Computed example of a mutant assay.
Amino acid sequence: MRAAYASAFDADNPLAALTVGERPEPTHPQDDWVTVQVRASSLNHHDLWSLRGVGLTGDQLPMILGCDAVGEDPEGNHVVIYPVVPTPGDPRGMSILSEHFPGTFAERVAVPRMNLLPLPAGLSVTDAACLPTAWLTAWRMLTTKGRADEAESVLVQGAGGGVATAAVALGHALGKRVYATSRDAAKRDRITELGATALEPGARLPERVDLVIETVGAATFDHSLKSAAPGARIVVSGATAGHEPKVNLRRVFAMQLEILGTSMGTPGELTELLAFCAEHEVRPVVDSVVPFSRVEEAFARLNSGDVFGKVVIDHSV
């Protein structure tokens, strides 16, 4: 079957480590695993980090990339794949597809049957393929960790990427006042269209917020602290611009701030997200849809840094 996989590592030019070609059919590590025919998938920065050698070792190569997908189960049902799988031997006890087990950038992928969730009516295959990683992470940041039900205002740092853009759209759909930063003027215009007040990085907010969504890291963390209201939650799921920020601890304890780390989410949270998007007609922001026959272009698009929202791969062409 055709697949896109890491055949090597290249920290400086991850695209050079990507190969598209034939790979063996999926195997089932346990009896409760099934094979899914992939219809659509979407890229995450995790895929580029894998090509750089982060999270993988040489003896795991070649590794089919991809975490997110929608497909058809053996009975012909349309299903959304929850990408976190139990992994004995991993220190976390789990991993996401494309770490220890082949990922979704292939014609077919094997997953535990319990990882298959029904595709809700009203959600397209393309839209649902965006949700299991970036949008699920944003949903968990806002709801479970950030307790958005207790918040009136939200700051999203670095909107434009998958998680941050999802947080803007979901925060607005949840009825919150959303502020979002971006260095790019064109992206700020698009953020405004999603219902947020768009600001340049480091700009003073009209108010201190109850919840900060932080995926940037060192470049924005001081601004996140200064923008937080007393008792606010700063939820962190990434550090694309530095993972060792200076933290003013006096502000943390004086303002009684909570700094919370998270990644991904549970199957139950993904079920909630799917239902929320279907019921409230929230649709993922899709940067582009690329046919699998040009999957290299999808990786190049993500690697360019110019994306706004998700890059989706159509496996039918």
Rank of each mutant, 00 (worst) to 15 (best):
A173M: 11
V216K: 13
G162T: 12
A198S: 09
A186C: 04
G161F: 03
G202Y: 10
R204D: 11
V156M: 09
D189M: 10
A167Q: 05
E200C: 05
Y179G: 00
E200Q: 14
S153P: 04
D149M: 10
V178T: 07
V156I: 12
T192R: 13
R190H: 01
G146V: 12
L199Y: 10
S182H: 08
T192K: 11
L170T: 09
A186E: 15
D189G: 01
E214Q: 02
G202V: 10
R140F: 01
G175K: 12
A166L: 11
G158S: 03
D149L: 05
G202Q: 11
D210I: 05
G202M: 14
R208E: 12
P201D: 04
R204E: 15
E200F: 11
S182N: 08
R177V: 07
V209T: 01
L142R: 00
V168S: 13
T165Y: 08
T181A: 06
G158E: 06
T197F: 00
L155V: 02
R208V: 00
A186D: 14
H172A: 15
G202W: 03
E214Y: 14
A151C: 15
V168N: 05
E150H: 12
G175D: 10
A218E: 15
V178C: 11
I213D: 02
A196C: 06
V156A: 04
A169P: 05
A151Q: 06
I191R: 04
A164R: 04
R188G: 06
S153A: 15
K145M: 11
V212R: 04
T197H: 05
I191H: 07
A167C: 05
V168C: 12
P201C: 07
A203L: 06
V216N: 05
A185D: 12
A148P: 01
S182Y: 14
T181R: 13
A164N: 11
S153E: 09
